[in-house]
């Protein structure tokens, strides 16, 4: 009786170890081929967004007209697998340069920045008749 139990335990342990080894192998190998979405691609997108919006005057218009709808239109055109947020600040006078947030938009369905893999880009600009401003872009995978 006892000997039989001993053999059964042996078999159970051996099978369990075998299953663990095979599973671990698949888990490790499964990670190898995963497409590596790195932050540099997100950072490039953030940089592109701010440059495009600045160069064609969208950022300045948003500050002058106190309306961020056009920026919202733009970020809603971006791929749905990524979330984007753009925040606009007025930059205070030297020497303190206090940042005061004056507006912001975020992609539809993306309420919070996820801590994992967020890329941040920033750009300063001067709207006509206004002082120095800064836009910050946060880009992350949904």
């Amino acid at each position: 009786m006892k000997r039989g139990i001993f053999y059964a335990l042996d078999a159970i342990i051996a099978i369990a170890l075998f299953v663990i080894m095979v599973s671990a192998g698949f888990v490790v190998l499964g990670g190898w081929g995963a497409y590596s979405y790195d932050n540099s691609a997100l950072a490039v997108t953030g940089h592109d967004m701010l440059t495009v919006l600045d160069v064609n005057g969208t950022l300045s218009d948003a500050v002058v007209n106190d309306n961020v709808d056009t920026i919202k239109n733009f970020i809603d055109l971006l791929p749905s697998y990524m979330c984007n947020s753009i925040l606009i600040y007025s930059v205070g006078e030297p020497p303190v340069y206090n940042l005061t947030r004056i507006g912001g938009v975020v992609s539809e369905g993306c309420s919070n920045v996820t801590a994992q893999g967020v890329a941040i880009a920033s750009r300063t600009f001067i709207p006509p008749g206004k002082g120095l401003h800064m836009a910050e872009a946060y880009v992350w995978y949904r």
């Binding site: 997108t45 592109d48 967004m49 495009v52 160069v55 064609n56 733009f74 055109l77």
Partner: peptide
């Protein structure tokens, strides 16, 4: 993303 003839 870039601009072509000033358009996104």
């Amino acid at each position: 993303y870039a601009l072509l003839n000033h358009s996104w």
